[in-house]
Amino acid sequence: MKYIYNMKGRVNHIKMLTMASVTLCLMASCSNDDEDEDLGNWIDQSVFDGSPRSGSAYFTIGNIGYSGVGYDGDDYLTSFWSYDMDGDYWSQKADFPGTARNAAVGFTINDKGYIGSGYDGLDELADFYSYDPTTNTWTTIATFPSTPRRSAVAFGINGYGYFGTGFDGDNDRKDFWKYDPSTDSWHELVGFGGDKRRAAITFTIGDYVYMGTGVSNGIYLDDFWAFDSATESWTQKLDLDEEDDYSIVRSNAVGFTLNDYGYIATGTYGGTLQSIWEYDPSTDTWESKTDFERTSRQDAVVFSNNAKAFIGLGRTGSLYLDDLEQFFPYDEYDDED
């Protein structure tokens, strides 16, 4: 009886030993496999750079893109970076002097950048700052005099800044305001006929600024507008769902200009989107372009100076992305690059 028990015991122990050895072997091979995959991914994605963050503000001055503030999933940020489009490298610049925030706006007036409004995790904000790239310094400018807000739109043209729409914590807005840097003052601008919204986009072609997309109370807006900077008047263009095959409506997208065409890219409509649409202002029509090659995203940043455009730094769900990709609208799609 005792002998039999021992036999059983020994068999069990042999089994256990075998299992332990197998486990060890698996561990060894697994750890090797993982290592290879992680490395490959990291280098691929990381045409790296800047920092993984979302809801960053951005503007472009000449051949340099600037991006700062944002939310990295744990913290609201104040760090501020420049991206040299020709040299393809980043530099960390002077920290943003206001409260750390995301969903702020960025725009350029006469070779100075501006960042303001946004959300610090508790409140919507109304403070604005200008950045001078020649001295790498920030200056506090006049606080926005109306309701603090986040997820607004802003653009600079003809020596003025324009800021409007957004979410004030309770309601979406449809008011537009004008900032005059020569007097450091804000004035309300009347005449925008569109609906209230948040997380819309703009792009500028020549003397016109185009504005559209965004969301309000769960409804994605399909109206599209052109702002004539000479007369400061708005004209409604064809809706973003005018043709049956258009799928342009969305929020949290990016808008940019390249070779005098306008683009709406990425964003969210139910889920995050990779699609890019091209706007031809001469015909008021849209054409679908090759999808953004990387993971779909919302709240990305875009640097564009009409000659080059780079998209990056958005988020998909809770995964924060940190790569940047140049967009060539006229090149054939190549999945090797």
Binding site: F48, D49, S79, D84, G87, D88, Y89, W90, S91, Q92, K93, A94, D95, T135, N136, T137, W138
Partner: peptide
Amino acid sequence: YQIDLEDRVLIKQEYIPILEGK
């Protein structure tokens, strides 16, 4: 300083980060 990945410059820092001025 600059940080290179193979032949590519990733970060070029001519001035101290965070600080205003150059």
